[in-house]
Write a protein that binds this DNA or RNA. Sequence first.
DNA 1: TTTACTGTACCGACTGGTCGGCACAGTAAA
DNA 2: TTTACTGTGCCGACCAGTCGGTACAGTAAA
Lengths: 205, 205
Amino acid sequence: MSAKPTTAALKPVAAKPPQAPRGRPSSRETMLDAAVAVALEQGAGKLTLDAVARRAGASKGGVMYNFPTKEALLEALLERLTSHNRQASEAIAAELPDQPGRALKAYVMNSVRDPDEDDRVSGALVAVVNGSPELLQRVAGYFSQRFEIISGDVSFDRAALAHVATEGLWLMELFQISPFNAVQRARVVQLLSALAEQDLPDVTA
Amino acid sequence: MSAKPTTAALKPVAAKPPQAPRGRPSSRETMLDAAVAVALEQGAGKLTLDAVARRAGASKGGVMYNFPTKEALLEALLERLTSHNRQASEAIAAELPDQPGRALKAYVMNSVRDPDEDDRVSGALVAVVNGSPELLQRVAGYFSQRFEIISGDVSFDRAALAHVATEGLWLMELFQISPFNAVQRARVVQLLSALAEQDLPDVTA
DNA sequence: TTTACTGTACCGACTGGTCGGCACAGTAAA
DNA sequence: TTTACTGTGCCGACCAGTCGGTACAGTAAA
């Protein structure tokens, strides 16, 4: 009992180094998967460290070992999420002919995919939104960056309108407040696709 | 210390009677105002009963007297919110010439108002969304109802597109993830207005 | 007397985070 | 081959704080 034989605790800590990830990568992934599952099934409000640990078949200590704080976990979750999202969009774009508006079209197509596919994005964003401003800012940054990409080779009007409309549908479905039934939704998706593909006549006459 | 003298825990609870509102209407309003203020200033996560009481210059007991549960408070908040929103839209519509698309135009105009006006909606919605599914369903119901109104006298395409686009801008600004600067936002608003006013040529050729 | 509270004390559940310690793989001297 | 030691990865008990909700005595106006 004299002194403390284990657990160094002498480290200078260095004011948050670039988030050196601890633990086995596989454990981290498992825990992130668990976090997504919990958020989707129980809602963001129930996304607790205990719940993640249980779901991952790990202990709370194990979670804390891999992610020093809950915010670190959310940050990693967000990172993985945006990364996947970006990759998915790029993959779709790669299949499209190389012409102006390709990135915009790919973005729209990626956003309106059948939502019950487990792209997992939903729950986590909610969890993040309801939290630290820092994380929110990351999301905002991602949105800005993405808008730059999709508006790179088309008119502002076209990109902006497609963007707000697509995000509108996506966010409403994320929060389960969309008023559309399946048929209506299909039509909206059709409209969004068309919107991404052609410039409208100048609507502000 | 012997046994447990307090905390009944024997109550049948009676499955929630129709929420008879207690207290003076003015007190209730003050507390709802306080709740909005707290949610806006401290975030939805800090919207606690104690915080509401302090902010309202009341006691916690007083809050509990007026709203038997926190959910009842949120419910009342949501009710007042949607009611105000509806009234604002209707007021705008009343100023508009009576022609097809009037409700749609009014809805768009109401939604894109300068957001730093204290229409208060923001914080509270977040607070509500992050919570019980019951309340979320109310929001969904409001959205459905509103879409019926705005799509009553125009084509589905026009109403649907204006709706998703308007909500997209609104929700992005609500979560502070909009990528637009002031000039860009103004242009987007212009586009939305135009969208609400005229049918597009059939974009799905 | 009733209504509408105030004010305070307290409970129980839950939450993020800490801490001591353990299993085990690797290593390297004996 | 055995023994001793080290660092990593993780467990699980625990802690302090927070929050919703309860209880109840007192009070002041109608």
